[in-house]
Design a protein around this nucleic acid. Sequence first.
DNA 1: CTGAAAGCGCTAACAG
DNA 2: CTGTTAGCGCTTTCAG
Lengths: 333, 333
Amino acid sequence: MVSIQDVAKKAGVSVATVSRVMNNKKNISQKTREQVLSAMKELDYQPNEIARNLFYKKTDIIGVIIPDIGHPFYSNLVREIEIRLYSLGYKIMLCSTSLVPLREKEYIDMLRRHMVDGIIICTHSLDVEDSLGGGVDYHHLSIPLVSINRVIGKNIATVYSDHRRGGELAAKKLLDNGCRQILQIFGERHIVSHSDDRHTEFARCISQSDAELINYRMENDTFDFAEYSQLAARLLKQYPQIDGVFATDLIAAAFIHEAKKIGRSIPEDLKIIGIDGTVIAKVVSPVLTCVRQDIQQLASKSVEALMTQINHKTLNSNEILVGISLEEGETTL
Amino acid sequence: MVSIQDVAKKAGVSVATVSRVMNNKKNISQKTREQVLSAMKELDYQPNEIARNLFYKKTDIIGVIIPDIGHPFYSNLVREIEIRLYSLGYKIMLCSTSLVPLREKEYIDMLRRHMVDGIIICTHSLDVEDSLGGGVDYHHLSIPLVSINRVIGKNIATVYSDHRRGGELAAKKLLDNGCRQILQIFGERHIVSHSDDRHTEFARCISQSDAELINYRMENDTFDFAEYSQLAARLLKQYPQIDGVFATDLIAAAFIHEAKKIGRSIPEDLKIIGIDGTVIAKVVSPVLTCVRQDIQQLASKSVEALMTQINHKTLNSNEILVGISLEEGETTL
DNA sequence: CTGAAAGCGCTAACAG
DNA sequence: CTGTTAGCGCTTTCAG
């Protein structure tokens, strides 16, 4: 590795001068500047970012923690976050917990050690006060932090979709469509997550009607289509009377497939509403009706909230709500 | 930030001793060790990784460069790479070029400055000897590097799917199915990419039959389903006679949708084979027949090849081939 | 077994 | 305008 010393020697100046040229400081004679520049070029010099990071105590790196980068929702979220951070000069350290709860804490510690400038976290695995001792004390983290779709603590910025509204929209739609036996599927609830709101609100709306609600809680969510298909087949058999389903896109897609297999027609005989509105919803046929999270907004607001913290300004509010919408497809009337 | 100095002071020892305890060195009295350990705990000390990196001249970070993390193929690839790197103690710097060719070089330079221990690159945008001057001289990079599905240079490790075989399998399948007017769609070819092989091989196989091949080259690939749908609709109208299609999963999915819309039945009237075999292929109906890249193998072999370089061992071969398979769905007979 | 000191590559006073 | 020097937080000789 060629260092600033090598450049200095080659240019016949001191390292301070090289540093000045690198950082476009004033008060450098044109001649010296050119000498240094050409020495840099000749040696193909690249300033060592780590050394600078050590000095400035900042890395221009943001840690992004998600459950699974293979999942369309998260990969799209990361995509949008990446675009925004890149334009602000930040890089991303990708932390995909692979749905392993403990890994969240490991990643947080790693990111702290690595002096990242901030963290955006979007996992749902660990409890804030986890009984396993694997919990993370986010309050004492002293790193700019934004959580997406999850309540982490009183003083921690959270950007979240209006899941409550999503649950309401979905319930209304299914009820309007005349559904009477409605199944909703949700994941484990180890933590306080905004995403749960959609299911409680959904349940509340249904309970105010004369329709019946069947709740199914998944034990080990794997984000795997084959498993979802098995699950869908099993549930359709177990509850042959259901005429409405509310579940995340990929599960909803599995229901479409399995329902077709046993000759149930969609939407006439069975209505389905997906959650998230990823590309999956658009690709299935019939096209999935879904409550869509506005991923671009989630990304924008999160990055914005993070930058506010990084720049030592205070947020107007720690709770930032992003709208959600019902997107009509062909799985409802 | 609490530093090693603070710990040393609190424990009443020198920084050297604290360092020794941290790194589990021998020759530390039990008593001192405990003092230090408790001081670390009390202060919630986290060793500054950046300082260590500077000393060791390594960061345990691998840069992963891809065109778009929002695309199912790449997000899954990154997923598998992440899992493997994580278990080896490495972190990932995610570099999604958003299909902007110039960004590849920017990322490479950034990664160099950041002293990453290695790079896995899977983009198709930049030419090795790019006329725009944006080209990257991979030979002089002096960082362990592995390229996936792309030829970068003579001495650079490349892990690639057997796309040639993929093209052959697809062509055989469509011909066996009796297709006579076959459309294949591919992206721009600014670079030498293994992925192109499937299309040249596909074309070769078709040319040996009496079927007719229509090639369509996309100018600006966006990975966007809505745009693909428009494209599919247009092409189906422009070439009403086509009875076979070969294109990436998402484009193939668009063809399924658009073909249905105009009343063409699949697979009877129109056969479709997708490329990649992402979740998209499984979710569409009819289920897409596809040539599947073995993402797990691509990830494993890439990481392996990278580790070989990082450990200063030499690779048996710079070209590592990964098998590909035809997965029968419902869009062919 | 432990401490003092040099140095990783870079930056920012402080002199000159 | 430029060089010398101290120091970012850590590790590792080298003494003791």
